[in-house]
Amino acid sequence: MNNKKLVSYSKYGYIFAIPFVLTFLIFTLYPIVYTFTIGFTDLHGAGQTELRFLPSVGKPLFQNFTDVITSGSFQKAFTNTVRIWIVNFIPQMAFALLFTAWFTDRRTKLKGQGIFKILFYLPNIITSATVAILFLALFGYPKGPMNDIIMALGISKKAVNFTASASTVRGIIAFIQFWMWYGYTMVNLIAGVIGINPEIFEAAELDGASKAQTFFLVTIPCIRSILVYVLVTSLIGGLNMFDIPEMFIGKNCNNAGLTTNMYIRNQAFLGSYLYARAAAASVIMFIIILILCLILLYFMRDRDEAKLAKIRRQERKAAAART
């Protein structure tokens, strides 16, 4: 009877989903298909909108893709992006987990943790363009706050030109990313821990588990789904890094901070308007991100649940074979 009622109202399901579906088709799906298509054409130049597929102008179909992959600039952008992401992500995750462990510890309740949480999250709400330019000013050369500190502490006698060395530039960008995002990651992880049933912790305590044991063997497995969410969003965000490196260094310092998104924008909108090549580069990035996400999801899958599902399947098969 319940089922019948649901069926009679089903048209509202369609109606309520229409705005989403329509907008999705026009503003997401169509541009994606369009981007893929442009990747196989020779679209370039300001103002040109006509699409000519590469074979029709006597070029191989995958020309743009091979151009991008073999381009030194793209390879540099890609290694930069991956390096900056890894250098920011490992400490980000480590400190986020550390603070999560401290702030959710039931035995030693840290006083003033509300203020700490608020302060740690603060950099995340500030416009990243502002943050990047602020750090550029802080790392100013020959005069700047950071140089003042370094000379006052006697670390270096001469002022350091931070934006002249490629590895320093990437290091600072990675640090800014870390500084902006560890608080966000922490807040998400804490949210996950708060959601865990307290009885589980009580049981662990009764069994004599140490703090570290409780955290690694009880807390982390319990927040697996939030960890997956944080990892996936960070991976996507990290490989799409744009604001900070663009505003902090741009093309200076011999492209030391060039990321793939900056490469795509430069190809499409600066200089020669190579839309087709930019489109091919976005498609390549999309495929890379997709593969990495799937690998991540595979490694983070619930192994026990997967095992259980396998056993159930086998049982069903066995039962089917018997009958």
């Binding site: 999705f24 503003f27 997401t28 169509y30 541009p31 994606i32 298909v33 369009y34 981007t35 893929f36 298509t37 442009i38 679209l43 909108t49 996936v232 996507i236 490989l239 799409n240 744009f242 998104n261 795509i264 499409a268 839309y275 930019a278 489109a279 976005s282 498609v283 990035m285 999309f286 991100i289 997709l290 996400c293």
Partner: peptide, 20 residues
Amino acid sequence: GIMMIPGTVTMIGFYQMVYK
């Protein structure tokens, strides 16, 4: 599925569409 698609992948196509 589309949650995993980064917005920038659609960017070139989106710009061309809006431009047109």
